[in-house]
Amino acid sequence: MTGELKVPFITRWSDEREVSRADLCLSTKGLFYRHDDAADRDKFGALWARTVGRAGVGEPRFRDVSFSRQRQAMRDLLCQVCAGPASTTRLGTLFLLEGTVRSAAELEEEPTGQPPLCLPCARLSREQCPRLVRRYTAVRAKKPTIWGVFGVPYLPPTPFLPAMGGLVPEPRTLQVGYGRADLRFVLAHQLLRQLRRVTVIDLDAELARSPAGQL
Score class of each variant (00 low, 15 high):
Leu78Gly: 09
Leu119Met: 02
Arg41Glu: 05
Lys6Ala: 03
Leu155Thr: 10
Glu106His: 12
Leu96Ile: 00
Gln80Pro: 00
Ala38Gln: 12
Pro115Ala: 09
Ile146Arg: 11
Glu109Leu: 09
Ser66Gln: 10
Tyr178Thr: 03
Arg135Pro: 00
Ala39Arg: 15
Leu119Cys: 00
Ser125Ile: 00
Glu110Arg: 15
Arg54Asn: 10
Gly151Asp: 08
Ile146Val: 12
Asp202Arg: 15
Ser68Leu: 13
Gly53Trp: 15
Leu91Ile: 00
Gly3Cys: 13
Thr145Cys: 13
Pro115Met: 05
Leu191Pro: 02
Pro60Val: 06
Gly53Asp: 01
Val19Leu: 09
Ala141Asp: 07
Cys25Trp: 03
Leu119Gly: 00
Arg209His: 04
Gly58Thr: 01
Glu170Gln: 15
Leu78Met: 12
Pro162Ser: 14
Cys25Met: 14
Thr11Gly: 01
Tyr33Cys: 02
Gly53Val: 10
Leu91Arg: 11
Tyr33Met: 04
Pro111Trp: 08
Arg140Asn: 04
Leu192Gln: 14
Ala141Pro: 02
Trp13Phe: 13
Arg140Gln: 15
Gln194Cys: 10
Pro171Phe: 12
Val19Glu: 12
Pro111Asp: 02
Leu207Tyr: 03
Phe9Lys: 09
Leu132Met: 11
Arg75Leu: 15
Ala141Trp: 06
Trp13Ile: 02
Leu161Thr: 06
Thr28Gly: 08
Val200Gly: 03
Val81Pro: 00
Phe150Ala: 06
Val198Phe: 15
Arg196Lys: 03
Thr199Glu: 09
Phe32Pro: 00
